[in-house]
Every structure is written in C-alpha cells, then in structure tokens.
C-alpha cells in the first residue's frame, strides 16, 4: 500500500463487499481489501509482470484488456468497481465508465489531477507536465487522456453519474481549499 489513493479507497469499500479492481497492478489493493475489509473479488490486469505479481499475491486476477469493455461481467454483479490511477491510460473512457456503472453498484475512480498548479505552471512555461503523479515524458507516457477535477465532473454529469464522495490529495494529505489547483490526485465515488 504505497500509493496515497489506496487508503482512501480502502476506507470507502464496505466490509464484505464484492469488488472488481480494474487495472489492479500487482493486486496489493485487492489483498489489502481482503485482509482489512474481508472484501473479495477479482482484479483485471493486462501486463504480464503485474499479472504474475497478482498470482504471487494470491489474488484472483483476470488477464483482460479493459478497452474491450467489461463484457465478462453481469449487470450489478459487484458492490464496487475500482479504477485506481488507470483512467488516464484508457482510450475509451466514456465506454469504460458506463461499463463500470453497469457492472457495479458503485464505482471508485482515482486519477492524477492535470489541473494541479505545478502542471499548469509547466504548461504555461511551454512544457508538458512531469511530476510525482505524472512521472513520464510526453514521448514515453502510457497516459492518453489526462483530465482535471472539473473535466471529470463534467463527464459524470454527461453520463448522469452521481458523485457520492470526493477526496483530493496532495503529497498524500487531504486538500480542501482550491482542490482543482492544489490537489495532485483525485478519488471519486460515483453511482449511476
């Protein structure tokens, strides 16, 4: 549990929930949710090394491509669908967000905030932002769809999704003032 958004997510997942963690990496969140919340479920991951790490972490992992949607999962079959720091790497975000709300009773989404003041300054200075949350250069980044808090909330409005909770973090600490400017990482809990 090294990423700051994971503690927030763990707080929001009710004990005993059935969870689906999309882009689950090495499965450490799922393992944490199992050990801490008795929440069980599956991770979805495409990267070979991460999938192997999931096996070693003893979490259920499904090696699938999120871009093709969540066809393997039935409507409302999970209490919670998690997309943690993966949104920015997805090509078809609108489709995937709809799919998350179809499959889960609720969805938790976290992503780096492109509206953070450092990112804005770097763009003003004529450079693509590079930071702790966005460590890659423009030419080797896996990120394809970066957004700000305001942008994501617009998408939720468009999809008719209700924002139930929002946590904004900077260096792992909560941000309450000017979140779209001072927050580097956003975590949302949304429902259909």
């Amino acid at each position: 549990m090294t990423r700051p958004d994971l503690e927030t997510i763990a707080k929001w997942v009710a004990p005993g929930s059935r969870v689906l963690d999309l882009g689950c990496g090495d499965g450490s969140l799922l393992r944490h949710l199992w050990e801490g919340n008795q929440a069980h479920g599956y991770g979805v991951e495409i990267d070979d090394a991460e999938v192997l790490a999931c096996f070693r972490n003893d979490v259920n992992v499904l090696q699938l491509d999120l871009e093709s949607g969540l066809a393997l999962f039935q409507d409302g079959s999970f209490d919670c669908v998690i997309l943690s720091e993966t949104l920015q790497t997805i090509h078809r975000i609108e489709l995937l967000t709809r799919e998350m709300l179809r499959v889960g009773k609720e969805a938790i989404v976290s992503f780096p905030n492109f509206g953070h003041w450092q990112a804005r300054l770097q763009v003003l200075a004529g450079r693509m932002p590079v930071s702790a949350e966005l460590p890659h250069q423009w030419y080797n980044t896996p990120n394809v769809h970066l957004c700000t808090l305001a942008d994501f909330e617009d998408l939720c409005a468009k999809l008719g999704a209700k924002i139930r909770e929002r946590a904004v973090l900077s260096r792992g600490r909560p941000v309450s003032v000017l979140p779209n400017l001072l927050g580097s990482l956003a975590v949302y809990r949304i429902t259909a």
């Binding site: 599956y42 499904l62 699938l64 066809a71 393997l72 039935q74």
Partner: peptide
C-alpha cells in the same frame, strides 16, 4: 477460455485467468 471464465463469474466462482501472448 473467456466463455468459461464468464460462466464461472456468472456463478460467482473463484477464478483466475491467464491469457498469454
């Protein structure tokens, strides 16, 4: 194989799936 995985998920069975390139 994905059809089997789906049938298992529909039944809420414990399943992991490896699809190797």
């Amino acid at each position: 194989s994905r059809a089997m995985v789906k049938a298992l998920l529909d039944n809420r069975r414990i399943v992991s799936y490896l699809e190797l390139d």
